[in-house]
């Protein structure tokens, strides 16, 4: 089956076309957040270069968050539009879980981290043992220091991925020697990796219709310091 995967959930934007687990093509940009202007032309060009058409797609995958408010709405709207028009099934995957898939096949811990601003991150924790992934922590929005607390008893290496990886590494590596930065080419969400993460759900038939695809915004905690100083 052919799958079109789209990610616009954070700084980068990408789309990928895959067939039965094989990547046919991918378009990735990491320039700024004007995903609303770039993602559909990217899809258009990718279809052209892979000699495929939209109607040949058997399903659509999209990252459902957490992530940028605008970005999530762009990706979901694009996928909903195409899937609804063609009557094709969809799979939504957590942005953080998608990033953890960069380490498929390894034996390691992965903590995806997205910068949620104001010293907060969206994060989770996963363990890879070969091709088996185990989720050890739910997607959550927490202050960076709380992430540090939650990892302080971990004895093995934890790979940081995501656009908040540098930020977390620099704030926490002194207190947490277990942290390791994923290489920069594995740091960002990639539609090709989303395709891999969504593949299992498609093969098991765990799909949803376009209208049941919903974004997973995470509530940001009112951080330890006062975020909004009201002086009205």
């Amino acid at each position: 089956m052919k799958l079109l995967s789209i990610d616009t959930s954070s700084q980068s934007a990408s789309c990928a076309i895959s067939e039965d687990g094989k990547l046919l093509g991918e378009f990735f940009t990491n320039v700024n957040l004007t995903h609303s202007q770039t993602i559909l032309p990217m899809v258009h060009d990718l279809l052209e270069h892979t000699r495929t058409t939209l109607s040949q797609m058997d399903g659509f995958a999209v990252t459902t968050g957490p992530g940028s408010f605008t970005g999530l709405r762009i990706g979901l709207s694009a996928v909903k539009g195409m899937a609804h028009a063609l009557g094709k099934p969809c799979v939504g995957v957590s942005t953080l879980e998608t990033m953890a898939y960069h380490f498929q096949g390894q034996r390691c811990l992965v903590a995806p981290v997205l910068d949620a601003r104001c010293a907060q991150v969206y994060t989770a924790l996963f363990r890879w043992e070969g091709n088996t992934i185990t989720r050890l922590a739910e997607d959550q929005a927490i202050p960076i220091q709380q992430l540090g607390e939650s990892l302080k008893n971990v004895k093995e290496t934890v790979f940081l991925v995501g656009d908040g990886a540098d930020l977390c590494y620099n704030s926490l590596n002194e207190q947490l020697p277990c942290l390791a930065l994923a290489p920069s080419f594995l740091r960002y969400t990639r539609a090709s990796v989303l395709a891999a993460a969504a593949q299992t759900a498609f093969s098991l038939g765990n799909t949803v219709s376009a209208q049941d695809l919903i974004p997973a915004y995470l509530r940001l905690p009112q951080a330890q310091r006062e975020l909004l100083a009201k002086q009205k």
């Binding site: 940028s68 408010f69 601003r117 104001c118 940001l220 009201k230 002086q231």
Partner: peptide
Amino acid sequence: ELYSTGFFDYLELGGVLLIEWSENISGA
């Protein structure tokens, strides 16, 4: 509410942001 204005996304766009009533978001 600040998140759902898209404010944090606008920070990445490379333009100039002019913010009225910035007192309400001073911590951000």
